[in-house]
Write a protein that binds this DNA or RNA. Structure first.
Lengths: 237, 237
DNA sequence: CGGTATTTGTCCGTATGTATT
DNA sequence: CAATACATACGGACAAATACC
């Protein structure tokens, strides 16, 4: 498989991130980029389209393609990236603790919450994310056992997605995400350094599917409200 | 301009929303769709790509294109849609009150918050969104006066975006959005029906730009935490 | 102000690769 | 092995918005 347009997308993105192109700059014209990369215009436009979706660039009809003022959303919570990828990007050094890793079966009440198949075996784990000595995120994960086989604490402390993609050769497809606010539970109070006057946590619920469409994961990321930030980019159609 | 692919996107989207296609169904093959709409395959693929970005469909190499189980994100808070569009879509009947509409100048401290140009004249308004007799969202808006000309209370109660696009013939381009949690201010307490034990609000900050790139709006949507929901769809690349 | 060149937007047709049936 | 279906890429054409002279 060729996927030239992905390489070009990554190349241009790198040049923006390394400030070879600055916000407000005009990129070379699409025809110039065609000559530079030795590809057709359709391929260039596919690469530029990816950058536009992420909020890195904006095209103006008849004028050119301009670099936006941006912290691209893939660096924040937006986009489907693993926690490890996000923290590496942002440059913040997180530590992950795994106080719990066990096997269980999806019972009816769990099925309702997780949307995972009733009766399926799953790994159930808690992961606590520590920043600057404070525990600010509690991840409650459920992974289908027959998909994410042989999960260990070491893998969970590093990156489960990396393990799935590189070791198990699985293809992650898409995720639905819901953000809301809930009262803090006793588990939140046990694992997070909550502030005394804050009886709430921000909850990000993730329903993650493989490329073939089957859901293999449900995760609740429970955030200390004062440290929660989510950024997003949207275009008008 | 033709924009056949937009029409096809809207047509297929409509068929999914009206349950002509159900979740799990396979759409006709791309070649069948070409024949049906009388267009080339590239045009069909552009339409399908829009649906895929919104989380309505998912393509499987060699198998077909399948309808996902979904409330598409444009129906919720995701996507760049006006409050009126979102509420019409969700079917919830909101009422909008406009307790304040005044003109002001962007001073240095406002410039820092809103990112609007220093010294520019702006409309400043409060809009309270009421649902089921409860005031649950306080919108604090700043619109550049030389862009959104002649703004009135009537327009603000209906839809400012509709006014901009249909009356002023302006093209809205893109927005950056940040979601976080803040302590409730005295204004929140004045305008929102906050619950007594909830000293916080969920704040959605919007930096909205015209198609030509200039920012014309800053809005803070301040939500009662227990009524706040945000949904999102993401793909792995 | 007008004509020409440049640049992005849309669409077409074709060819080839790769995954599934 | 062949047929089907999606993925990638090429090249050409014309439209629409803008820039330049």
């Amino acid at each position: 498989m060729n996927r030239r347009y992905i390489q070009i997308y990554e190349d241009i993105k790198g040049k923006i991130l390394e400030h070879h192109y600055l916000p407000g700059d005009k990129l070379p014209s699409e025809n110039d980029l065609c000559r530079h990369y030795g590809v057709s215009r359709g391929t260039i436009r596919k690469a530029l389209n990816l950058l536009a979706e992420e909020g890195m660039i904006h095209s103006l009809h008849g004028k050119g393609v301009f670099v936006l003022d941006n912290k691209p959303i893939t660096f924040s919570v937006g986009g489907l990236v693993s926690f490890k990828e996000a923290s590496e990007y942002s440059g913040q050094a997180f530590v992950t603790h795994v106080p719990k890793l066990e096997s269980m079966v999806i019972n009816p009440s769990l099925h309702k919450i997780t949307q995972l198949p009733l009766g399926a075996e799953a790994y159930h784990l808690y992961r606590v994310r520590e920043l600057d000595g404070e525990n600010i995120i509690l991840d409650i994960n459920y992974f289908l056992k027959d998909v994410v086989t042989d999960l260990t604490k070491e893998i969970a402390e590093n990156s489960i997605y990396e393990y799935m993609e590189q070791t198990l050769q699985l293809k992650i497809g898409f995720a639905r995400r819901v953000i809301l606010v809930e009262p803090a539970t006793s588990k939140d109070k046990e694992y997070l350094d909550l502030q005394p006057n804050s009886p709430f946590v921000v909850v990000v619920k993730n329903f993650v599917h493989l490329y073939d469409g089957i859901q293999f994961e449900y995760t609740e990321s429970r955030h200390r409200p004062d440290r929660f930030v989510f950024t997003d980019f949207a275009r008008r159609r």
